[in-house]
Design a protein around this nucleic acid. Sequence first.
DNA 1: CGGGATCCGTCGGGATACTG
DNA 2: CAGTATCCCGACGGATCCCG
Lengths: 127, 127
Amino acid sequence: MGNEANLEPMLRANGIARQVIDHIGDKWSLLVIAALGYEAQRFSRLKARIEGINQRMLTRTLRALERDGIVERNVYPTSPPRVEYVLTRIGRDLSVTVTGLCEWARRNLDEVEASQRLFDERSAKEM
Amino acid sequence: MGNEANLEPMLRANGIARQVIDHIGDKWSLLVIAALGYEAQRFSRLKARIEGINQRMLTRTLRALERDGIVERNVYPTSPPRVEYVLTRIGRDLSVTVTGLCEWARRNLDEVEASQRLFDERSAKEM
DNA sequence: CGGGATCCGTCGGGATACTG
DNA sequence: CAGTATCCCGACGGATCCCG
């Protein structure tokens, strides 16, 4: 696995980007990170906040993020049981760039959609 | 927008994050954006730069990015045909945050992997 | 309340071969 | 060189039921 540091910088960015996608490129991770924000949140709260997710996918996503050290899970053995999730240090760090992505989308969504319509119209004409 | 600061801000972030993932959440988009950088690149160059991609997936990814207005496609009808791809304005804008993601990964990859090992060991013990 | 277990569909994406 | 056309598989993810 030894990487030569001198190969094109893109090759390294390549592997790095791979890692990013492997960790947060699935359907729900970004949403969970965004929904967590900076305060600890209970499972049911998260589920309510994230439109369209079900228990299973929320559990799986949280487990994966916990495994990556992005989310911390705290169980309080009260009755009824109470489980809270909170972003770790690197999780909060990540959420900053995630926010950057969301802002990009907010800034450019209109333009993206306009581009799509144009593209689709041109595609239709050729048929 | 409405100054009802009380409507959970997350609900909006929710939809926005959805958009982001729908556009660049697949396996190759981030890699293509990173590989494009700031100069126009030919198809074959990109293919060589992005380890593990094949023609079909590179074509599909480029088409999707072109449709979103993130990548511009320029055909020079020489012989042999020559096709160059370049990031658009919003594409370059996006690539900034993509770079941010990659830097996050570079900074924290060690910690993420350590966390994974810990998590996996603990999981194994319980069985 | 916060999960785990199971069943099952779909679709992303890989391999390969062909075309202009 | 750049792109299209088929075939096909496995994982991602949804629904549902059950548990401590």
